[in-house]
């Protein structure tokens, strides 16, 4: 049942964004979303828990502004590196520890790392992420992990556990 509700809501929101809030469109969208959710919900592994809504609000209010600010900083950094004729880069692949489990938390963390200054997540295993860093700093794994994913580790850890 929780899978069914989750799938319907996830299909209904893009429909509202696409088709507008005309009543007939809303009824059609809700009907189609529920029919499709009824067909496919057994094959999903997403469950709509009671904490999901609070998590989504927290995600929007706490995570998104930090993310956008980091994205702007990352782009100014990239612009300076690309426009500088000598191209000051010092790249390397580093291994950083992470405490976040679960697919969605991992996806959010990897995407945040890719869009923050100078880093691109390449691969991961159980407890680590492998990151390409354009300007390697720090010595130990822990120090590097703090520098790369520090601000996001706490926020996402609070949302996805």
């Amino acid at each position: 049942m929780s899978k069914f509700i989750g799938a319907s809501v996830i299909m209904f929101i893009p429909w509202v964004l696409l088709a507008g809030s005309d009543p007939s469109e809303l009824i059609l969208g809700a009907t189609v979303a529920m029919v499709i959710a009824g067909i496919i919900y057994r094959n999903l592994d997403y469950a709509f828990k009671s904490g999901s809504l609070a998590g989504a609000i927290k995600f929007l209010v706490v995570y998104v502004p930090v993310f956008l600010w980091e994205l702007v900083k990352a782009n100014i950094d990239v612009a300076f590196r690309v426009l500088n004729p000598r191209m000051p880069i010092n790249p390397g692949f580093v291994k950083i520890p992470t405490g976040i489990k679960g697919d969605y938390g991992r996806l959010a963390l990897a995407n945040s790392i890719t869009l923050t200054p100078g880093t691109l997540s390449v691969d991961g295993d159980e407890n680590h992420l492998y990151v390409h860093w354009i300007d390697v700093m720090g010595e130990s794994q822990k120090e590097r992990g703090e520098l790369v994913s520090g601000p996001f580790e706490d926020i996402l850890g609070g949302i996805f556990k």
Binding site: V72, P91, H132, I134
Partner: peptide, 23 residues
């Protein structure tokens, strides 16, 4: 586009291309 063209290897190119086009 300039980053894709100037950077020396695939990973540095991916960095410049992704961040700049997303923002």
């Amino acid at each position: 586009g300039l980053g894709i063209y100037r950077m020396p290897d695939l990973f540095n190119r991916a960095q410049a291309g992704t961040k700049a086009t997303t923002l």
